[in-house]
Design a protein around this nucleic acid. Structure first.
Lengths: 336, 336
DNA sequence: ATGAAAGCGCTAACAG
DNA sequence: CTGTTAGCGCTTTCAT
């Protein structure tokens, strides 16, 4: 039953009065059940239940220093890629009794900084997904506020890689196997960890495969960048491209269609992430699939563990990425 | 510059000592600038800046009773429909200096209840999007915790309609104009406000249009329901359907394809929401477009205003819905 | 096992 | 305009 607002909130004091014990006893009964007698504990818990007691986060935070909330910062809530991240962290945190503050940093490092500043006092820790901040800034913040990074690694800061560079290698392998020689990699934002890893892997692998890799300049990882990215790929004379993420890749598909470039006839496109929509766009997008929910849960668990034990444990290896081949990639058209 | 954790947090007391004034003066200087002399205010603000002072949300909440955070509860964070809602409320709240707690209730009324219970003490108010709770429960909660409803209306509780029933009418008009006579409406979840409105409007309008409307039983508003919903529509012998949301509609498109039912040749499909993906699925989906970000901002503004003034203002009218015609709807195939 | 008491950082009367 | 004082609800020594 919902308590009426006019009665005010039920406090520890109320329970103490009700049960004829001291507030400290009530506090213990509710948070350290082993340090009170079984009988009083039962009595207090029953009263709490009956009166609809709900602990005050503020009171608790003030005296204990812990807020029982952790922040999740993502660069773009409207990118379906972050679905799994949001769901995964949320379920893990909820199970542990933590609240979950979601912050959309809108691809802006400045907003990230400001948000961290604001979260510093109100969160016990923060999960930072795909941060656009510099390595030193991240390291500095981690000293103030426990951080776990997702898809970004910084020396000395806990992190979980979602993306595995091998996905890009598989994509390249696939395109080369189809017969492509001149292949473009369409970059994401300049600071991105996965972007760097992919460039490294592709750069190192292309020669071995006998492929001619051309890398674009960085793009904002959103649909809006698609048309420009598509045009760039055409200008570079590639017959196939690997794209930083599916949001851009799907948008590029449309640009190619608008310019009369047949996909996959005249241009093969491989995206990354396998987001919502990748399987039903037109043509369906060949993409690098990476499970996100599991690493997100890992990140949350990592943070919780660190808060509890003070230890920094190292994360399990991420699930391997795999290529999901759909209709947007095919052998290059033979020149007439 | 980021303050080092070893120094501990800077408090009002620190600033007071630093400036040689009382904590209350510092408090006022930072929250009621007009109640302090300009010179001391400047001195204090400068010190705060210099020492990297950040107010303690907990301390503030405890003494003022306000937490400066508001909750947003959505039934499914992985439904792109809620993108605009999340963005809209977030931007509005951020501008007002409020924190934003996102809760995914996973289409479960029980989880909604539990979340409200937990948020009661830690939020100043909650924006409840597409609640699956009963009207009486919602009204009861509103007495305890200021609520604003999105896409759900309950007597006496502030709400903003995103959906306008006229969208469904336009969809029906469209299909009838194309020549369809037997038209199915695929329902969403039982408690949904928009679902009820649409049934009412469609039920009232169909006779006037000379259409034969058949209404399905309720479905969970997710992709998973698509196949079953598609099968039901076929069983009902309709040549066209209006679907509760695009998530289901897109999924139905695929089911129809799998069953060899040509869309739009043998079946016209009209969705609702115009979510991410509706424009690039195959075939592109005719759908009822409704702007979500603006009403979400309105909802946030409404809540903030109520918290500030205690008044309950009534919201502006929602933006009108409009039909966006794409390739998933066409005239019915002439029987051979 | 339980109680008394001291704050945590801040706001909000109430004095001056 | 500013200082003094009392809590807000809770956890946490320190006694008992």
């Amino acid at each position: 039953m919902v308590k009426d607002a006019t009665q005010g909130e039920v406090t520890l004091q109320d329970l103490a009065t009700e049960c004829g014990v001291a507030v400290s006893t009530v506090s213990r009964a509710l948070t350290r059940p082993d340090r009170v007698s079984e009988s009083t504990r039962a009595r207090i818990v029953a009263a709490a239940e009956r009166l609809g007691y709900e602990p005050s986060v503020a009171g608790r935070a003030l005296s204990s220093g812990r807020t029982q909330t952790i922040g999740l910062m993502v660069p773009d809530v409207t990118n379906p890629y972050f679905f799994g991240i949001i769901r995964g962290t949320q379920s893990q945190l909820r199970a542990a009794g933590y609240a979950h503050v979601l912050v959309d940093t809108e691809e802006s490092a400045a907003l990230e900084e400001e948000s961290l500043r604001r979260l510093r006092r109100s969160c016990d820790g923060v999960i930072l997904a795909a941060s656009r901040l510099g390595a030193e800034e991240i390291a500095a913040w981690d000293r103030v506020l426990p951080l776990v990074l997702l898809n970004r690694s910084v020396e000395g800061v806990a992190s979980v890689e979602v993306d595995s560079p091998d996905g890009a290698r598989q994509a390249l392998d696939h395109l080369v196997s189809l017969g492509h020689r001149r292949i473009a990699y369409v970059r994401g934002p300049a600071g991105s960890g996965p972007d760097r890893h992919r460039r490294e892997v592709l750069g190192a692998t292309a020669p071995r495969y006998g492929a001619d890799l051309v890398v674009t300049d960085p793009f904002a990882p959103t649909s809006a960048s698609g048309p420009a990215a598509a045009d760039t790929v055409l200008r570079l004379g590639a017959t196939a491209c690997i794209v930083f993420n599916d949001l851009m890749a799907i948008s590029m598909l449309r640009r190619f269609a608008d310019r009369g470039v047949d996909v996959p006839g005249a241009m093969s496109v491989v995206g990354c992430d396998d987001i919502f929509g990748a399987d039903f766009c037109n043509p369906p997008l060949t993409t690098v699939t990476v499970p996100t929910e599991r690493p997100a849960r890992t990140a949350a668990a990592l943070l919780l563990d660190r808060l509890r034990t003070g230890r920094r444990i190292s994360p399990e290896r991420p699930l391997p990425a795999h290529l999901t081949i759909r209709e947007s990639s095919a052998p290059p058209r033979r020149d007439p």
